[in-house]
């Protein structure tokens, strides 16, 4: 009679042997596929990083633009100040004797007299003044023009008037830029949310939270700060935005509680400052 047990054992061995190549092929195929996927993901990751960088640069440029707008907003005052600063200088510069000599130098070059000597004070003051403004040239032109026409005080007044006119024109352009800029921010937020959903990067969600906070959408800012915090609890900015948003949403007590809890763990000075401001009512 046949030994069926022995035969079964042999059959099992044979089966295992016959499956080995299939298993090897399957495993190698899976590993190849995984490697390919990993490479693809890496590439995408690089692209995302690149995009993040691009975004950062965008935000930087946005910040720059914003700064510019702020600068533009402040420019009138600044420039007026500068003008007020430059005006006395001009007054100082435009002393009758040396100016006349320069005028004589410029106008009657053929009639150069060797007796004239340059005013050292004038040169020194020119060096110290170091006006970095591109609109120096028109000023000097105006100077020369006005110098030819009118006495010193009138020149100063004219210059002031001219400068004011210029500064009035610039903000109008910049205001237009601000509106365009805001639209870009909204689009950017959407784009960044999309990307955040893909890669769950806390930097992106924090950015969104900050942007929403800036736009005054405190509820969304709160949510995204919370999401960021859930991904990474160590990001200080997420706690700050979260607390600020809470205050804005009339949840002052909760904001204080949150900040206290965070400060107890991190001893963050920024958070402490914010907490003090909230408690004292400076931050509303």
């Amino acid at each position: 009679m046949l030994n069926t047990r022995e035969l079964e054992k042999r059959w099992l061995k044979h089966k295992i042997k016959s499956y080995i190549p299939h298993v090897v092929i399957t495993l190698s195929t899976i590993t190849i596929i995984l490697v390919i996927f990993a490479f693809i993901n890496l590439d995408e990751g690089d692209k995302n990083l690149f995009l993040v960088d691009e975004n950062k640069t965008q935000t930087v440029t946005q910040k720059q633009v914003q700064d510019e707008t702020i600068a533009v907003e402040t420019k009138p005052y600044v420039e007026i100040k500068q003008i007020t600063k430059t005006a006395p200088e001009i007054e100082a510069i435009v002393t009758p004797a040396p100016l006349k000599s320069t005028l004589e130098n410029n106008s009657s070059s053929s009639e150069k007299s060797l007796k004239l000597s340059p005013s050292l004070n004038f040169i020194n003051k020119m060096q110290h003044s170091s006006l970095p403004y591109y609109n120096n040239e028109p000023i000097t032109k105006k100077k020369t023009q006005t110098l030819k026409k009118a006495p010193q005080k009138e020149i100063v007044e004219e210059i002031q008037d001219l400068k004011v006119e210029e500064t009035i024109h610039i903000p109008e352009e910049e205001v237009k830029r601000v509106t365009i800029n805001r639209r870009n921010v909204a689009d950017d937020i959407k784009h960044i949310i999309k990307r955040f959903k893909k890669n769950n990067n806390p930097a992106l969600s924090l950015f969104v939270a900050k942007k929403y906070y800036e736009l005054g959408d405190y509820h969304k800012a709160y949510n995204y700060a919370l999401i960021t915090n859930q991904i990474n609890r160590d990001i200080e900015a997420s706690w700050i935005v979260f607390s600020k948003s809470l205050v804005k949403l009339n949840e002052k007590e909760m904001a204080i509680k949150t900040l206290k809890e965070y400060i107890s763990n991190s001893h963050s000075s920024t958070a402490q400052i914010l907490l003090d401001e909230i408690i004292s009512g400076k931050f509303k």
Binding site: L7, R10, K13, H14
Partner: peptide, 15 residues
């Protein structure tokens, strides 16, 4: 399974 066991026993499968 039984067919393969028979094949192993008869030498049709070299196991």
């Amino acid at each position: 399974k039984l067919i393969e066991m028979s094949a192993i026993h008869t030498g049709l499968i070299n196991a």
